[in-house]
């Protein structure tokens, strides 16, 4: 399941970031990384980006669809490594 498969207000946990190292690094420096819980706020019109909220900080980010499709998420909590 990726970020694209969520419905509004759903809270999920990030499992893995995109394979592209630079993309992953950019996301991770913005607070999105494996284990982080985020809420899918809503999607922009005209197939625009997604708005997500980092549950730890309340910070909101908009993510392009192409990027969001590569972020694997899960509904349940994964045990901490």
């Amino acid at each position: 399941m990726t970020l694209l498969d969520l419905s509004e207000d759903e809270v999920v946990e990030i499992r893995s970031l995109p394979a592209d190292a630079n993309m992953a690094r950019r996301m991770s420096s913005l607070g999105l990384f494996a284990g982080r819980r985020i809420r899918f706020v809503k999607a922009a019109p005209f197939a625009g980006p997604l708005l997500v909220e980092d549950q730890a900080t309340g910070a909101r980010l908009m993510i392009a669809r192409a990027m969001a499709g590569e972020v694997e998420v899960t509904r349940g909590r994964t045990p901490k490594p």
Binding site: N22, M23, A59, A64, M67
Partner: peptide, 10 residues
């Protein structure tokens, strides 16, 4: 491009 990811401050 890296693809857009941008902060939306309150």
């Amino acid at each position: 491009a890296l693809g857009l990811i941008m902060e939306v401050p309150p």
